[in-house]
């Protein structure tokens, strides 16, 4: 057959692109994405409700908006929306296809299993980062918008835009890190929701853990990237803040490491749908 004779990197690049584009299509434009859109709509609805219930005095000055959004971002967006969206999108990459009995079509293509894992993962990261990144931006805008001109100038100032960029970057890294974790859960567990709920518990407990255990969580590094520090409550155990570069490196390493384990796992993947 003509055209299919490329090998090595050029072929892998093309295959990764094809797989990623297919995953983006499925994760963004199909009914499969509905739960993620419902989740993404929640912070936006929250921002709208806030604007409705806001008093006139609060409306005049955006003094507390930065802190309020920081808390909503940390306790709601990161902990619930990004976490569960990543669970929905990334668990489906492999486990979903096993349940739909369609994974074998990928395994019957001339694609290295590692390439398959990377292509699907990148598709998931782009899809989740696009949806949730956009959600973060819209939510921030809706938080500042009710304050009128004062809010807009605060948002469009250099520090305001830097904050927006930091939140979006944190969201993208959260998608990458949680995504790799859920991809792995989907490969190793028939019911990935059990480890997902256990991990959520671990993430929620992180502020109360000693420093040497905090490093084993994702939210610890994500928290270091948030532009506005927030209080974790009176019972939280304080730890030395991590430099931003180290937090980014740690999240990239976590994502890469988990993806590598996932790619290794796919090498031995067998199609036994009846066992599901």
């Amino acid at each position: 057959m003509t055209g299919g004779n490329s090998h090595g990197w050029p072929l892998w690049r093309r295959q990764i692109t094809v797989l990623a584009v297919q995953e983006i299509g499925r994760s963004v434009f199909s009914r499969r994405a509905l739960p993620v859109y419902l989740l993404a709509a929640m912070p936006i609805a929250l921002a709208l409700l806030r604007s409705i219930f806001m008093s006139e005095s609060e409306r005049a000055h955006p003094t507390h908006t930065t802190t309020e959004f920081a808390q909503v971002f940390h306790f709601f967006l990161l902990r619930f929306i990004v976490f569960f969206s990543a669970a929905v999108l990334f668990v489906k990459l492999f486990r979903g296809e096993i349940l739909e009995r369609s994974l074998h079509y990928h395994l019957l293509a001339p694609v290295r299993r590692e390439v398959l894992a990377v292509g699907k993962y990148l598709g998931g990261v782009v899809a989740s980062a696009s949806i949730l990144g956009a959600t973060v931006v819209v939510t921030i805008v809706l938080f500042y918008l009710p304050h009128g001109r004062a809010g807009l100038s605060a948002l469009t100032s250099a520090s305001g835009l830097a904050e927006v960029a930091a939140y979006v970057a944190t969201t993208v890294l959260a998608c990458a890190a949680y995504g790799s974790l859920f991809l792995l859960a989907g490969l190793f567990f028939k019911n990935p929701m059990v480890p997902a709920v256990l991990f959520l518990g671990w993430e929620v407990l992180t502020p109360f853990l000693p420093g040497f255990l905090k490093v084993l969580s994702v939210v610890h590094y994500l928290g270091s990237l948030e532009p506005v520090p927030i209080s974790q409550g009176p019972f939280a155990l304080l730890a030395q803040p991590i430099p931003e570069w180290l937090a980014v490196a740690a999240l990239v390493a976590i994502s890469g490491g988990l993806l590598a384990i996932g790619a290794w796992k796919t090498r031995g993947l067998e199609v036994t749908y009846s066992a599901e």
């Binding site: 929640m42 929250l46 921002a47 409700l49 806030r50 409705i52 219930f53 309020e68 808390q71 909503v72 306790f75 709601f76 902990r79 619930f80």
Partner: peptide, 10 residues
């Protein structure tokens, strides 16, 4: 979580 967030921001 959503309910708590609504209570907090409103």
């Amino acid at each position: 979580g959503f309910a708590e967030a609504i209570n907090a921001v409103t």
